[in-house]
Design a protein around this nucleic acid. Structure first.
Length: 816
RNA sequence: GCGGGCGUGGCGGAACUGGUAGACGCACCGGACUUAAAAUCCGUAGGGCCGCAAGGCCCGUGCCGGUUCGACUCCGGCCGCCCGCACCA
């Protein structure tokens, strides 16, 4: 986009804390940065402003790079690349050709989701609520020759291997599980009872998860775009019905309210278990062509949709699953389908079986009749990867009149984009280039045309992490380097990629592993999904949005009011929402860096909320972080320069040392478990404590303890506020730079106070406290408690029944 | 409808495997410094009640109930909010 926003600041600050922390702990850390740079934003800019997308993209990269460098991220910039670099997308073409050889790439005519605004095909994952994920336009259905990657070949693995990703959020794993949507059941074919329509002599295949309810069948349904339905559309009444079905939109509200409608084709099929039983074949709007076989058998008693349909068209409703405790003679289904457990009845050979054994028995019978078999069906569809766009990675094939679709040899790579595409009007700039597509066929040498579709940008982002491990390799991936670094130990990103990027990258990793170019079968061992940066919204009385900087907020007790600075007009403080230009509730990183500095900005986005939750940006919040930065510096600045004085015994110094070591432990634990806000709170506490031990007038042991404290503190803050930490480290004479200093260790013995203050409860209510030596035995503690005059007063008139002592924690006296 | 998550002060949040609820920050209030303001520093602070005060008592983590010596934490049932998927046979 060309500009850093606060979301970037938070995302990369999180990653940078991990990178710096792990480096300090002695790990070899690879923390790279690159640019996902193909795609529509560049084309739109080109069209709107007449600029060259390449120049626009690289200008934006340059600006964002300098902003990122200002953020002070510990990134290895020598590995930087952009997906629109020929050096990158040429390598992508190379492995794409390898996948073509193994049959993972194919081309077929299919109904696709067409985004009329972006003028391109979208993958199913990229259609949200019937709209394009980027443009927001209602997608249309079109038939196109499309390139696909056979991700469904990996459906089982993609699902099963989720269980190995124990450092992924459950939520993301669940979303992928639902998306892949494995279901087990049976696939079988109904035979037509009369003459089969031409081409359907083998019968009508259906898929079901409930073969146990076959005796409850009352109709067979097919999707409006089922081949058989389209064949029957020569009858104008059928054609009219299909047109009627297409009218309904795909949006949530439309599906919710859509009535089930059907058309009786007049065809009948024979029940697989009873040659005398005929079932009518209906075309029904609620059946989806792209799931299962696009055809079902309807069992109204045990499926709500089938029941709604049957009730409307007066089809039979015969229950075949008897709920526990029901009378078989009396049990009926009318408005609500029964989907619970029970025993099969009204079902001949299946009678008396529970549901699961009945499914197996039904499948067995279908198999023995040669009519069908057990089958697993996925919701996951193959990945449509072709985009009719000019600013993308060209698909390295040509179309030859004689040889058909021909993959280019690797020697013909890279297939470079031309420098002079015309982006002034919508559509595919590559396809309308006057000469680029003219070439010769690598097989026959005759004239041929280059493929003008480019790859989905999600292909670009599905393997970049492997390229980072060796960005100069001749091969797309250097196996030794990839084996050394991969999988990515810690990935940080937004939840919006849960079933897009994160699924595609997993698939490509597995496919490339099967090619032998990678050893890992999962790209990301640890995944962290961070929350968004939000901000209050402000509006004028007339509803117009206003920017935070135009508003002054004042507080009167617990009430907050805002006025428009310019006019003094009272404004309306609205909801806290994701920062968005449309609501004018954005704050740009550069304006914050200018006023408060990078460290305060980093500190604040990490301190306010747990990283996985949304964080609310506020001017007063970042001011608090800025105050902390200044107070830290003052503390370092007040310490006499030079080495720590020799230590000798002083209880004051011991107290500070204990606090120092407790803080090291607290911050370390918090950073390790991604609780950065808690870690920062420990650092604030530490600074507050440090003020009780001023350098001025301090004894030599206290000065030494201060030196130890500051030395540790400089290293603790360094992942969060690296610039401040560097200055602080230099100020106290730290060796080298703090960025390369080892993480401080703590002495467990020092994290414990010698004296513990234990709360004393009577019947579970806090009634006092006592001081005992750490680790004091329960029996001794009990004696001290019972000897305590204050506690004794509390127990007056009560009989002690039991005294519970939890070592070093609490005492509870049960009395009555 | 299906699946998942979350409800703690005025606000963001803390409380590790049940053990002093409200750390830390923001806001608020009071004080010091200043001619004044800003900045800075110090301090009070969950709610209610009693007391001149020291102090004391009661209530309190969405609601109701349970387990336990002890529950923000575990169990059961409600209510509310948020997210994902959605006519998936």
């Amino acid at each position: 986009s060309g500009r850093l926003h606060m979301g970037h600041v938070r995302n990369y600050s999180l990653g940078d804390v991990v990178a710096r922390f792990k480096r300090a702990r002695g790990f070899n850390v690879l923390h790279p940065m690159g640019w996902d740079a193909f795609g529509l934003p560049a084309e739109n800019a080109a069209m709107e402003r007449g600029v060259d997308p390449r120049g626009w993209t690289y200008d934006n990269i340059a600006r964002m790079r300098s902003e990122l460098k200002e953020l002070g991220l510990s990134i290895d910039w020598s590995r930087e690349f952009a997906t629109c670099d020929v050096e990158y997308y040429g390598k992508q073409q190379a492995w794409f050709l390898d996948l073509m050889k193994t049959g993972l790439v194919y081309r077929r005519e299919s109904t696709v989701n067409w985004d009329p605004v972006d003028q391109t095909v979208l993958a199913i994952e990229q259609v949200v609520d019937g709209r394009g994920w980027r443009s927001g336009a209602v997608v249309e259905k079109r038939k196109l020759n499309q390139w696909f990657l056979r991700i469904t070949d990996y459906a089982d693995q993609l699902l099963d291997d989720l269980s190995t990703l124990d450092r992924w959020p459950d939520k993301v794993r669940l979303m992928q599980e639902n998306w892949i949507g494995r279901s087990k059941g049976a696939r079988f074919s109904f035979q037509f009872s009369g003459a089969a329509p031409a081409g359907h002599e083998a019968g009508l295949p259906v898929y079901t998860t409930r073969p146990d309810t076959l005796y409850g069948a009352s109709f067979v349904g097919i999707a409006p775009d089922h081949p058989l339905a389209e064949q029957l559309a020569s009858d104008p009444r059928v054609a009219a019905f299909i047109a009627e079905c297409r009218k309904g939109g795909a949006s949530e509200a439309e599906i919710e309210t859509a009535e089930k409608i059907g058309f009786d084709t007049g065809l009948t099929v024979t029940h697989p278990f009873d040659p005398d039983w005929k079932l009518p074949v209906w075309i029904a709007n609620f059946i989806l062509m792209d799931y299962g076989t696009g055809a079902i058998f309807g069992c109204p008693a045990h499926d709500q949709r089938d029941l709604d349909f049957a009730n409307k068209y007066k089809l039979p409703v015969k229950p075949v699953v008897l709920p526990p405790g029901e009378d078989p003679a009396a049990f009926t289904v009318s408005a609500e389908a029964y989907v619970g457990p029970g025993t099969i009845f009204n079902s001949q050979f299946l009678n008396g079986l529970e549901i699961e054994p009945a499914k197996l028995a039904a499948i067995e019978r279908l198999e023995s009749q040669g009519q069908g078999e057990g089958a697993t069906v996925f919701r996951l569809r193959d990945w449509g990867v072709a985009r009719q766009r000019g600013w993308g990675c060209p698909i390295p094939v040509v179309h030859c009149a004689k040889c058909g679709v021909v993959a280019l040899p690797k020697s013909a790579l890279p297939v470079k984009l031309p420098d002079d595409m015309d982006f002034s009007k919508p559509g595919n700039a590559l396809a309308r280039h006057p000469t680029w597509k003219d070439t010769t066929c690598p097989d026959c040498g005759g004239a041929a045309t280059r493929e003008t579709d480019t790859l989905d940008t999600f292909v670009d982002s599905s393997w970049y992490f492997a390229r980072f491990t060796d960005t100069a390799a001749d091969a797309p991936i250097d196996k030794a380097a990839a084996d050394y670094w991969l999988p990515v130990d810690q990935y940080v990103g937004g939840i919006e990629h849960a079933v897009l990027h994160l699924l595609y990258a997993r698939f490509v990793t597995k496919a490339l592993a099967d090619q032998g170019v990678l050893s890992v079968r999962e790209p990301f061992a640890g995944l962290f999904t961070q929350g968004m940066v939000t901000h209050e919204t402000y509006r004028r009385q007339n509803g117009e949005w206003i920017e935070p900087r135009s508003v002054e907020i004042t507080a009167d007790g617990n009430n907050r009011r805002g006025v428009l600075i310019e006019t003094g007009e009272q404004i309306v403080i609205g909801d806290v929402e994701k920062m968005a230009k449309s609501k004018k509730n954005t704050v740009t990183p550069d304006e914050i860096f200018d006023v408060y500095g990078v460290d305060a900005a980093r500190l604040f986005v990490l301190s306010d909320s747990p990283p996985e939750r949304d964080t609310q940006w506020s001017a007063s919040g970042v001011e608090g972080a800025w105050r902390f930065v200044n107070r830290v510096w003052n503390e370092f600045d007040s310490q006499p320069p030079g080495p720590a004085p020799a230590a000798s015994a002083d209880p004051k110094a011991d107290e500070l040392r204990a606090f120092t070591h407790r803080t090291i432990k607290g911050v370390t634990d918090a950073v390790e478990s991604f609780r950065f806000n808690s870690g920062i709170a420990r650092m604030y506490e530490f600074l507050n404590k440090l003020k009780e031990f001023p350098a001025e007038g301090a004894t030599a042991p206290v000065l030494a303890a201060r030196h130890e404290a500051l030395s540790a503190f400089a290293r603790l803050i360094s992942p969060f506020t690296p610039h401040l930490a560097e200055e602080a480290w230099a100020r106290i004479g730290g060796e080298g730079m703090v960025v390369s200093a080892p993480w401080p260790d703590f002495d467990p013995a020092l994290t414990q106070d010698a004296v513990r203050i234990l709360p004393v409860q009577v019947n579970g209510k806090r009634r006092g406290e006592i001081s005992v030596a750490a680790g004091a035995e329960p029996a001794d503690v009990e004696k001290i408690v019972l000897d305590d005059p204050e506690i004794a007063r509390r127990l007056e008139g009560l009989t002690i029944r039991k005294v519970i002592v939890v070592k070093d924690r609490i005492v509870n006296i049960v009395a009555g």
